[in-house]
Design a protein around this nucleic acid. Structure first.
Lengths: 213, 213
DNA sequence: GCCTAAGTAAACAGGTCTGTGTAACCAAAA
DNA sequence: TTTTGGTTACACAGACCTGTTTACTTAGGC
């Protein structure tokens, strides 16, 4: 007989369930952990927020620790490649920071927060936090090397200090201007290293010259 | 144990007591809150560490929240006056940071940690954290003004970013070199503002010149 | 000697947390 | 049909938390 009901395989539109249960749990855990704090949120709260039973949550993650680890790993997204010139990419980092600060759901660096909350004894958390910080430092270093900066290693570290400093300051002060201050400081440091960041004369540049933009 | 003398100091209190019970509670709370985290330490643990009953603790502090507030206020020590030239004072800040990073009991900024742990909803904690950050910024600004720096306001903010950035980085990486990196960045920023920090030519200085100690 | 203040010990109330156990349910697959 | 697997609802264990209560002890000051 011809089926009066629709083909079961393509029956419903994705809107209600576009993602798997595991993803839904992770997404909700991310939101709550980040916004309210890892220790402040219990697994009950997460399950209730999604509307599932706690048992289901534990069917997907063996423990809260595993959920925390998955949360941090999910936050560890690598930067997308960009075709903009390296100096612009570096400075754009701070613009992006400023935008994030302005959002009302910004609550500092999830990795720093996790280490602060869970303490240094939690090796798993610390390990991924270190990996994240190092990856960002390497990202800066790569761009600086591209720019021909002599001591890219040291300058990358200094830029990272500005990033984390502005994040910490914004966390307590809620002042997106911290990102702009960091950007200005970064410009000075870059200029001092011979990078052309526009707006001012440069002491001396390594032989290679870059076309503006 | 090594604490036979220390024990005496606590036990056999000479007429002018070396410290009152309230101070002992605060000192212990400070150590544990800072090292292990505020949420990780219960009042029982603090009382047990001192060897007093929980009731005694509650006789001195009406609630754990009050103890937390007292802990943070105790951490809020203002800098001692110094007769060294301002530029040296500023740079010495980073040397002091490096020394603190090297100590094994360093665990980041207690105010940032408290905000990260307790969340933005805890207004009392956030308030004192903001006050502390602002006081440090003003300390920098004062010295910069003394040095005749034009935009002391902006530069003070940038120096604060370096301080907090190195603290955050050291918290996750345990790398005291972060303080040195911050110091080098600070030197560049100061030099750029016309301050003589030694070791390099200065673009242009405001009329006032300081004797190099 | 007596009184007061402070501390001790231990239980307790009422709450939260993580994680498990159990029985029922429901839909799709075999 | 029966089976299977994911889910729900709910109770529960065991631990820990803040804060209180009760009853007892101790040390000085009068």
């Amino acid at each position: 007989m011809l089926s009066s009901e629709q083909d079961k395989r393509h029956r419903m539109a994705p809107p209600p369930k576009p993602q798997t249960m595991k993803e839904r749990i992770l997404e909700t855990a991310d939101k709550l952990f980040y916004l309210k704090g890892i220790r402040a949120i219990g697994v009950d709260t997460i399950a209730a927020e999604i509307g599932i039973s706690k048992r289901t949550l534990y069917n997907h993650f063996p423990s809260k620790d595993a959920l925390i680890a998955a949360y941090l790993e999910r936050r560890f997204v690598s930067a997308r490649p960009s075709d903009k010139p390296p100096a612009e990419q570096i400075l754009a980092t701070f613009d992006s920071l400023e935008r994030r600060f302005a959002a009302k759901d910004f609550r500092g660096c999830p990795f720093v927060n996790a280490v602060a909350e869970l303490g240094p004894a939690d090796r798993a958390v610390k390990k991924i936090a270190i990996a994240f910080k190092e990856s960002r430092r390497l990202w800066f270093r790569e761009r600086l090397t591209e720019l021909g900066v002599r001591d890219a290693e040291a300058l990358a570290t200094q830029l990272v200090l500005l990033v984390d400093g502005s994040i910490a300051q914004d966390l307590v002060r809620d002042d997106p201007a911290m990102a702009r201050a960091a950007k200005e400081a970064a410009k000075v440091l870059l200029r001092n290293a011979g990078v052309d960041v526009g707006g001012d004369a440069v002491k001396q540049v390594k032989g290679r010259k870059r076309a503006p933009q």
